[in-house]
Structures are given as C-alpha cells and as structure tokens.
Amino acid sequence: MATTNLYGPTVQIQKSNFKVKRKKPNPITRFFTDNRSNRSVGGNILLVIFLTFLALLFLFPVIFMFNSAFKPLHELLKIPPDIFVRNPTLDNFYDLRELFSSSLVPLSRYIFNTFLIVIIGTLGQIIFASMAAYPLAKYDFRGNEFISKLIVMSLMFSTAVTAVPNYMIISKLGLIDTYWAIILPSFSSTLGLYLMKNFMEQIPSSLIEAASIDGANEFTTLWLVVMPLVKPAWITLFILSFQTMWGATGGTYIYDEKLKPLSYALSQVASAGIARQGVTAAISLITFLIPVIIYILMQSNVIETMTTSGMKE
C-alpha cells in the first residue's frame, strides 16, 4: 500500500496533462456511411423511407385525435378540413363536462369506476401471479412441468373462447352488476404468470437457499428477496394489466349505468357521430394518453422482461 501511495500523485498529474478529447461520431451519419457491415447504403435509405412512411401511417390517427380535441367548432366542420389546429381551445373539454353534467351519471363517476377497477385488478393480478410463479419457477415438484405446459396452452386462446363459462360462473356467484365481475377474472392472468415465471427462473437458486438459511420462511423470501429482483417483471405486468383493464367496457357483465367504466362512456359519446366529434376526440385523447404515458415512463423495464419471454418447445 505504502509504495503505491508514493507513486500515486505523480501518475495522476501525468494523466491530467494528457487529456484527449475524443469526438464521438454522429450516430445518424454513421448509420448511413457504415461500410464495415454487409448492409448496402441504398438499402439503408430505402429502409428509412419505408419506416418513416409506416410511422406516419401509425401516427396519423393520433395526430388527428390530438388536433381535433383542441379544434374550435368552426374548424371542426371546415371544408376542406385541416389536420392541424389553427386556434387551439379547450372548448371540447368543457363541452365534455357539460355533456355529462346533464346525463344520468357524471363523468367523474365513470373515471372513478375505471380507476377502482384498474387499481384493484392490477394489484391482485401482480400478487397472484407472483405467488403462483415463484414455486413454478424455483421448485421442483410433481406436476410442475404439466402446469407450466398448461399455462403455455392457455396463452393460445383468447378470452372470447371462455366467455360463456365465464359468464355462467359469474352469474352463479351473483357477481353480475358488481365491480368484481370485471376484477375477479382478471386476477388469473396467465400471460402475467408466464412472464413472471420466465423472469424468476433467472434468479440464482443459491440466493433463495441463503435466505432460508438466514431463517426466512417462504413468504418473506418471496416478498423480500425475490420480488425486488424481479422488479422489471412486475412493472411489465402492471402495464399489461393496466392496459387490459383500462380498455374493459364490462359489456356483458355490468348493466348498471353507475358502475360502467370510462371506456364505455367513450363509446357512448362516439356513437353520436360527427356532431360531437370534438368531444369524442377529447375523451379519446384522455383514454389514449394515460396508458401511453405510463408505458413511456417504464419502457426499459418492459423491454428487459420481454427478453425472457421466449417460448421453448
């Protein structure tokens, strides 16, 4: 130690003398002029044009929605129509409030319903999925393989297939016209379970053994050791379930007007057609923006989870 300390300062002085500034090449120019790889420059240009076109196609409805939401009435009904708004106003949002203040159920009730369903459903889904995924990923027991195969199978058909039995079970349980009709089925999301299980398989088993040696029981191991490690997985699960719950209209389960979610209100407004297009755009914008913003904030976690999402035969 002593000898290295002696030489330490001199080395540092030398280092600071020779500070070289390295210029990073601009990624865009590098992209077009990169001739190390076997990608032709012409192909690159074609690719950029193609992707720009596609992106515009995908963005168009969003841009349209965004602008319509802020257009005053005379611009909405202008012929020929403009895509971009000239004099943005918030009139449409006021109209939206006005429209619902005269209706049977206020808008805030719809929003409250949606948030209640989303929050309880999402939390439940995360808790159940992680508790189910943990033994499947980390323990060897009889039937483990069979259950895992069953989960993969269940990914292969959509909820429409089970609509009839689902409805019957819920009506027998007496849950029609309650929030639980939407919340309860969402607890058992196999997609979430599958993603969670794949992600948990990466955790080294020695860590869990260490926890049990230190005297943790299974539950504390799961919540204090495993869950912090699989943070990207449950964030992804949060986004996915948020998205499905957010879009749920409760069609066949909920008939009481007071219990219907926001997306149902949206479809009601939209059915009025062109006369209320500003209001439709405004409420669409609200339903569109919230999940997208949440996704943007948590993007990197999602991608990390998805790398483990692969399916082995």
Binding site: N44, S263, L266, Y295
Partner: peptide, 30 residues
C-alpha cells in the same frame, strides 16, 4: 437496424395504439 434513440421512439409509436384502450373509436370520425 436503426440507431438506438430513434429505435426507442419508433417502438413507442408502433406500440402505443395497442395499449390505448378503445381510443380506436377515433376511426369512426375519420
């Protein structure tokens, strides 16, 4: 194939419609 920043941006553009609930009703206006 694209540089990283643009890649993240495009991923959002292409993924956004599918998470947006039933905002597709905007198409009834178009």
């Amino acid at each position: 194939e694209l540089p990283r920043r643009i890649r993240a941006f495009l991923t959002i553009i292409f993924y956004a419609p599918s998470i947006s609930g039933n905002a597709y009703l905007i198409f009834t206006l178009i």
